[in-house]
Amino acid sequence: MKIKCAEFVTSAVKAADYPAGELPEVALAGRSNVGKSSLLNKLVNRRGLARTSNTPGRTRLINFFRVNGDFHLVDLPGYGYAKVPLQEKEVWRKMVEGYLNSRKNLKGVVMLVDSRHPPTAQDIQMYEWLKHRGVEAAVVATKADKNSRSRLLQSLKTIRAALPLAEGDLLLPFSSVTGQGREELLEIIGRWVASESRDVRHETWDVGRET
Rank of each mutant, 00 (worst) to 15 (best):
S197Q: 11
Q87N: 04
T142V: 08
K14C: 06
R198L: 14
P164A: 02
E7H: 08
L172D: 01
N101Q: 15
G208P: 11
D169H: 08
K143M: 13
D75Q: 06
Q154L: 13
S175N: 13
H202Y: 10
Y79W: 06
L23W: 05
A20S: 14
V139M: 07
R209P: 03
A29Y: 04
D114E: 10
R149P: 09
S102F: 02
D70L: 11
N63E: 03
V200G: 00
E25V: 06
T59H: 02
N41Q: 13
E187T: 02
L152A: 07
N101T: 15
T59V: 10
L165I: 13
R60N: 03
R58N: 05
K89N: 04
I188A: 01
E196A: 15
G190L: 04
L186Q: 02
K146A: 07
K4M: 04
N54G: 09
E128H: 14
K143C: 09
L171G: 06
K36R: 08
D114C: 12
T204H: 12
A6C: 01
S155Y: 07
L153W: 08
D206M: 11
A162H: 10
S115H: 06
N33D: 03
P119R: 13
V67H: 01
S176P: 12
S37R: 03
W92Q: 06
L73H: 00
R66A: 04
A82V: 15
N45Q: 10
S195R: 10
L170G: 00
G30Y: 04
N68E: 02
D114K: 12
M1P: 11
A144D: 12
V200D: 01
K104H: 09
Y99K: 09
H117V: 09
V109S: 00
H72D: 09
E90D: 12
E97G: 10
E183L: 09
Q154W: 12
T52S: 08
F174A: 00
G134D: 03
T55M: 12
F65D: 01
N54Q: 14
S115N: 07
D70M: 07
G80W: 11
L43K: 03
E128N: 11
V91C: 00
D145Y: 06
E7P: 04
G69W: 07
T52K: 12
R66Y: 02
S175T: 13
S38H: 13
K14R: 14
P85N: 03
D114T: 13
D123R: 14
W192L: 09
F64D: 02
